[in-house]
């Protein structure tokens, strides 16, 4: 019997994760919702004479929280996680494949969102692509840790939309997961992903 190489096992797993993400209706609707809301609010901002890129740090990250979260918690519906682990038993391979697929999906979605905003509003904010992708990554890790959509969503949205804005004026705010410091943001995303990977590696599925 033929044996696949380790690289081939990983690329096959990646293709599977990509297929899973793009064939999930909830992911499709979330992406369309992000673009629709971005366009709508950009129009409102322009009419109000405000900076059109405000929307990218305002309501839009919520869409990327949902995107990242669903890409992980959808595994825990219908017992799909079992199917995944029977097809890709090595957990690190399974998680890394999924992580790369999430980046490959959310990166371009973030790019297109910034493009929509720039086309409608005039000013482009390229940095938002990185921020939105990082937000989705943080959300996927929280989803992988909690394995439940609603509690994870409530926690994330409460942080991003209630607690975060409350402490925005503090000196440490730029180093928080919703802050403006790139290094801190990368450390948050990498740290919580490592934690989620460790949990996924050791826990019973």
């Amino acid at each position: 019997m033929r044996q696949r190489s380790d690289i081939r096992v990983l690329t096959d797993a990646f293709r599977a994760e990509l297929l899973k993400l793009v064939t999930l209706p909830a992911i499709q609707y979330t992406v369309l919702g992000i673009w629709a809301v971005t366009a709508l609010i950009t129009v409102a901002l322009v009419n109000a004479g405000q900076d059109n890129t405000d929307v990218l740090s305002g309501p839009v990250p919520a869409g990327f929280v949902v995107l990242g979260l669903l890409s992980m918690t959808s595994e825990y519906q219908g017992g799909q996680i079992r199917t995944t682990l029977v097809a890709v038993p090595r957990r690190i391979t399974a998680y890394v494949a999924r992580l790369v697929a999430i980046v490959v999906v959310t990166g371009p979605v973030a790019g297109a969102t910034v493009a929509v905003n720039a086309l409608v509003g005039g000013r482009a904010d390229g940095r938002a692509i990185g921020y939105l992708t990082a937000t989705a990554l943080i959300a996927q890790a929280v989803g992988a840790l909690l394995r439940r959509t609603v509690p994870a969503l409530v926690g994330l949205l409460t942080y991003y939309f209630v607690i975060g804005p409350l402490v925005r004026d503090r000196s440490f705010a730029e180093y928080l997961p919703d802050g403006t410091n790139w290094l801190a943001l990368s450390v948050w995303a990498a740290g919580i992903t490592a934690l989620a990977l460790a949990a996924f590696h050791t826990r019973d599925a």
Partner: peptide, 27 residues
């Protein structure tokens, strides 16, 4: 080949899409 309880498929996917990703994962 393993069969545990239920279908092991996400409810909102089609059967074909479900089997396709599994096939992809297994090469």
């Amino acid at each position: 080949g393993a069969l545990l309880d239920g279908s092991g498929a996400h409810r909102s996917r089609t059967a074909r899409a479900h089997l396709r990703w599994i096939a992809a994962a297994g090469g």
